[in-house]
């Protein structure tokens, strides 16, 4: 797995396909923190949402970076379909984690907040960014070339599912009225709700960890669906 991950990372690095989403991410971070001081959790909430969308872009480019002919060969050497795709998910997740850390650390480093940051803010910030990045990876990968044949449909699919997931946040109250339905929609609203807490929050309530856990679980559920579809479609054994 280490060799496969290293190969995927170098392939992605040398493709330069990360340049547009990374540039956009950095520009938006700079714009967001141009005027100071900023509230901590509110700012992290916005940049988490930003990362949720940008991670969709990263995911598609990571899953499409390898030449289709070479992909067959890499699959043969890796000797496992799951191993191959898990390496792609891992690469996307590591990039998501790196960007989460950058999004949390950079405003602290540049003194963009009005009040002193505490460990609690950092922890909530990383969890909020990374959970939404992970959810985005899970949702976006389902629209990549191995499942959706036309490239244009990949982009439409990814954009639609991310926008719909966000817009459902607004309808959350009405969904709650129909019992159980809320568990079906992508839980973008959960990190945003938690990040709406006041900066003076004395400690992280236990329920927050469960909610973040649910977001990760939702992402894993989509990864499992992706792997099931791929295994069904492929003759590789």
């Amino acid at each position: 797995m280490k060799g496969l991950l290293h190969y995927q990372f170098i392939s992605y690095l040398r493709s330069y396909q990360y340049v547009p989403p990374l540039s956009l991410f950095i520009i938006l971070l700079i714009v967001n923190y141009t005027y100071t001081p900023n509230p901590i959790l509110d700012s992290y909430s916005f940049t988490s949402l930003m990362l949720f969308f940008i991670m969709g872009w990263f995911t598609v480019t990571i899953f499409h970076v390898e030449d289709p002919g070479q992909k067959q060969i890499t699959l043969l050497h890796s000797q496992s379909l799951s191993k191959y795709y898990v390496s792609l998910y891992l690469l996307a997740a590591l990039i998501g984690l790196f960007l989460s850390i950058v999004a949390v650390a950079s405003p602290i480093a540049f003194g963009a907040f009005g009040v002193k940051t505490r460990i609690l803010h950092v922890l909530l910030g990383v969890l909020s960014h990374f959970s939404l990045a992970f959810l985005s990876i899970g949702l976006s990968a389902v629209f990549t070339r191995d499942i959706v044949k036309k490239r244009i449909n990949t982009w439409w699919g990814v954009l639609s599912v991310l926008v719909i997931s966000l817009s459902l946040v607004a309808f959350k109250a009405s969904f709650l009225q129909v019992k159980g339905l809320i568990w079906l929609v992508p839980p973008v609203y959960l990190p945003l709700e938690m990040m709406a807490s006041d900066d003076s929050l004395p400690f992280i309530p236990e329920v927050f960890y469960w909610r973040f856990g649910f977001v990760f679980l939702y992402g894993i559920f989509f990864i499992a669906i992706f792997l099931l579809i791929i295994k069904r479609k492929s003759n590789f054994h």
Binding site: I10, S11, R14, S15, D67, G69, Q72, I73, L76
Partner: peptide, 13 residues
């Protein structure tokens, strides 16, 4: 050893 039909067009190595 297996050599597939499609030869990769672009390999950055």
């Amino acid at each position: 050893g297996y050599v597939p039909e499609v030869t990769p067009a672009d390999l950055p190595f």
